[in-house]
Design a protein around this nucleic acid. Structure first.
Lengths: 329, 329
DNA sequence: CTGTTAGCGCCTTCAA
DNA sequence: TTGAAGGCGCTAACAG
């Protein structure tokens, strides 16, 4: 900032007290319109902008929300962040954001920093331990999680219903006659992955015979896990998310294995690239926009009105059938 | 925040003055080690954290950097943001971020807000008018742009050398015997697009006969522009970025036109999905990581030391040849 | 309706 | 080396 005009400068210029300037600037009703006008003009002319730190100090609030993401470069996460950003900005708040760079052990301290600077915090798919999450929740009330539910801690959360979504995928596969399907596990500390994995386990009721192979949640992880998956001679590979599925498709193509003729492949999330893979990916659509908006509105009500229900709304993930799945060979 | 312990609480607990606490907390040399120790323990036990707003007010600084992005969901932009975030966090700053949602007319006011809350601002590929940018630069010194250079305004910038990068792509195409190539223009207000387009224009020295078709910078834009591009019967389509190129590939596949046998396709940026398209995309690699790091270090030196050279370093974009290009039919 | 004044929590001279 | 006191810019009683 080059110059720094304060409220007193404006007061002097408009020939009123600083209290009047303060009120006029914030549009308090009780100000004489004439004075208000004069103040506005003086402020305008001087280019006065209230100092947010001073306001924060005086008000005891920051009008800022903190957001923690495991990985900003992941299309799924950044779509959620984008949705949150929309609400935050339009409600006149600022968004402080930290990227944990997929290092669960960093999450706690990053979040603590966030807590000191923001009125509320949104943790997106945190991978930190239950203990860390619990202790954060104890010391800080205005905090919610997205896609990580931990009950009995008094921490609100919103989530995609990964369990049902994955069950739908399994149902689809079963319906196509698949039984030997490999599930490529995602991040070991991800609640979402645990839910999806659990659903695959339950899919035995459809007659599926799931095999679990550890992979990861990135394109490369999917790529590398493909060979290990193939050792089980599956007719279908269900990845924990679209990223891993994309890696699988690439590797299968390299190996000359045709999708979906020889093996079917599914993802999860329906990121924007899912419909542009070859073949287009069958997946489950995660309602990112709705999730982000819901997260923001939930946090907002938590910050304004106090006690809220301790619900954890689960948004449906809808099956999207494309060309990467077909009848089992 | 549930509780709010202040410096006075710690002072009382440690039986010293608040001045001593203040000094001890910041590791000022002149404090008696014994006292310092006592203060540390008291602070620890009470869980004291200095109030950042009060510090800001007293120090006149925020230790916060603002970042403006046209679209957080764009893989190229968010990789740059991620790189910036890395530096910002490790240097103990916070990152305030706003998404302009691809609306150039919002950028100015969003940036002004950012300026009031941050010590420095990074504008990523801003699409605002030269006038807006100039006026921002006049009122605010600690501001730099990434991938938008505007000379003579005293605004620092770092950029990818889009011109040379696109020239390399054109050279590659020419070398393969292509001459009728369609360039799919990107965002009309993007400096980067202008540079790439300019390079294509210059490519006539290679014998290229460029045709310009307006498209956009999204997958859908590329998809929709493909039919219009084909009307010119090109042997190659050069998109302004990878996103548009992905849309082109999808549309061509729908039309049963084979790539690269019938038409070659190129992108720009080398986003992580570029090597996973079918066929893998020939493109130019934008040094996102380096760009983000350079942006941060540039801003940091601008914020600490004052007058800097008004350079605009251009980072090379390197041609990456994959399978979406081949000899002209 | 407007001005005066006392903080908000912290840092930083200035004395001791 | 330590403490007392003033001030950063703004808001919110409290008077008038």
């Amino acid at each position: 900032m080059t110059k720094s005009i304060t409220i007193s400068d404006v007061a002097r210029a408009a020939d009123v007290s600083i209290a009047t300037v303060s009120r006029a600037m914030r549009g308090v009703r009780s100000v004489n319109p004439t004075l208000a006008q004069r103040v506005q003009e003086a402020a305008e002319q001087l280019g006065y902008q209230p100092n947010p730190s001073a306001q924060n100090l005086a008000l005891g609030a920051h009008r800022t929300v903190g957001v923690m993401v495991p990985d900003l470069a992941n299309p799924h996460f950044n779509s959620v962040v984008k949705a949150v950003a929309g609400g935050v900005e339009s409600d006149g708040y600022r968004m402080l954001i930290v990227d944990a760079h997929e290092q669960p052990e960093l999450e706690r301290s990053l979040t603590e920093t966030l807590c000191r600077h923001a009125d509320g915090v949104i943790l997106i798919a945190p991978r930190m331990s239950d203990g860390d999450l619990r202790s954060l929740a104890e010391n800080y009330d205005q905090i919610i999680t997205v896609n990580r539910v931990l009950v009995g801690v008094g921490i609100q959360s919103v989530a995609t219903d990964s369990f049902s979504g994955m069950l739908e995928i399994c149902g689809h596969l079963a319906h196509l006659g698949h039984s030997k399907v490999v599930y490529l596990s995602g991040h070991p500390k991800s609640w979402v992955n645990a839910e999806r994995r659990r659903a695959v386990g339950h899919a035995s009721v459809f007659g599926l015979e799931p095999i679990f192979v550890n992979a990861g949640y990135t394109i490369d992880a999917g790529y590398e896990a493909t060979d290990r998956a193939l050792e089980h001679e599956p007719t279908a590979i269900a990845a924990s998310n679209d990223m891993a599925a994309i890696g699988v498709l690439t590797r299968l193509r390299e190996l000359g294995i045709s999708v979906p003729e020889e093996v079917s492949v599914t993802g999860f999330d329906d990121i924007q690239f899912a419909k542009h893979t070859h073949p287009p990916l069958t997946t489950a659509h995660s309602p990112r926009q709705a999730l982000g908006e819901l997260a923001w509105s939930t946090l907002l009500s938590l910050m304004t009105s106090q006690g809220e229900e301790d619900l954890a709304p689960h948004l449906k993930a809808k099956l999207v059938v494309r060309d990467s799945t077909a009848a089992a060979p």
